[in-house]
């Protein structure tokens, strides 16, 4: 039942995008949109492991890596959440229903869901870092009995910058997982939590021996999340994080995403924290 990816694409097919059509666009925040994409050829969308990414190509503009944020159990569409940070992401966010774009992938190593089976899960997400973790939440909720306690701590700068608000509200209501949403700066009308998500870790009831933690967000936040989790009794080897670097070929051949010995597009983007912590302490590595 653990999602498995298709074998890595090789040869020209790893380099040649496949055409997808925009089936729906959802406005998440002022700066982010979620796109549902369907293969133009009518065949199923590629299988993926939560945490994997694709390369999204906009005709005449360029290509960027984007984590997959849809439900791994669905093969009728590929879902991406894009935050406008540059020319390509702006073009993607501006796409309308019916537009055609190119997709390569999925690529990379995702979250360790097999290892997570039967264990307690702590998920710490910051900002758009929730996007690559949402497929994990879908999967866990669909196979709830296969996991122990599941806590999701999600933080954003302001309430307006929270992704998937309607879905979060529904998940909080039904109580299948413990979901805590917190913001750095509350605005009028916000009745939820205020503060950084990492600080909330100490309030969780944690059985370190049976817990696995997944975190994605700004690198600074992830570093502190690992430290806090260590304080809670976890070993860094029980924490997995998702890294972001420049990715161009997505198959470990162009060299851009090197982080010490790792090609993050290949041995990442999800890495075990104990492997990367010493490197995260080196500036400009």
């Amino acid at each position: 039942m653990t999602p498995t990816a298709e074998p890595p694409a090789t040869g020209p097919s790893a380099f040649l995008p496949r055409s997808f059509r925009v089936a729906a666009v959802h406005r998440e925040t002022a700066e982010t949109r979620t796109l549902e994409l369907q293969p133009v050829d009518g065949r199923p969308a590629p299988a993926f492991v939560p945490g994997q990414f694709t390369m999204v190509y906009v005709f005449g503009v360029g290509e960027v890596p984007m984590s997959i944020t849809g439900d791994p159990a669905r093969d009728d569409r590929l879902v991406h959440t894009v935050r406008v940070v540059g020319a390509v992401s702006r073009a993607i966010a501006g796409l309308r229903r019916g537009a055609e774009i190119g997709i390569r992938g999925p690529f990379g190593r995702g979250w360790p869901l097999t290892e997570a089976l039967g264990r307690d899960l702590i998920i710490v997400a910051g900002g758009v870092g929730l996007a690559p973790l949402r497929p994990v939440i879908y999967h866990v909720r669909a196979h709830r009995a296969a996991f122990g306690r599941v806590s999701v701590l999600y933080g954003a700068r302001t309430p307006d910058e929270l992704l998937y608000r309607r879905e979060l509200a529904r998940w909080r209501r039904d109580g299948a997982i413990d979901l805590q949403v917190t913001v750095d700066r509350a605005s009028a009308g916000w009745t939820g939590l205020v503060g950084v998500p990492t600080l909330r870790l100490r309030q969780l009831t944690i059985d370190p021996a049976r817990t696995l933690a997944l975190t994605c967000g700004p690198e600074v936040m992830m570093r502190y999340a690992v430290r806090e989790l260590e304080h809670c009794g976890l070993d860094a080897a029980q924490v997995h994080l998702s890294m972001e670097r420049n990715m161009q070929c997505a198959v470990g051949l162009c060299g851009h995403c090197q982080f010490g010995p790792d090609f993050l597009c290949r041995s990442g983007p999800v890495l075990r924290a104990d492997r990367v912590l010493p490197r995260l302490a080196i500036r400009e590595l």
Partner: peptide, 19 residues
């Protein structure tokens, strides 16, 4: 110490800053 640290993180505006 923990509260000060959390406050510094909030000040960092990390979600807006690069990765």
């Amino acid at each position: 110490e923990q509260r000060l640290h959390a406050t510094r993180l909030q000040l960092l505006n990390a979600y807006d800053a690069n990765g």
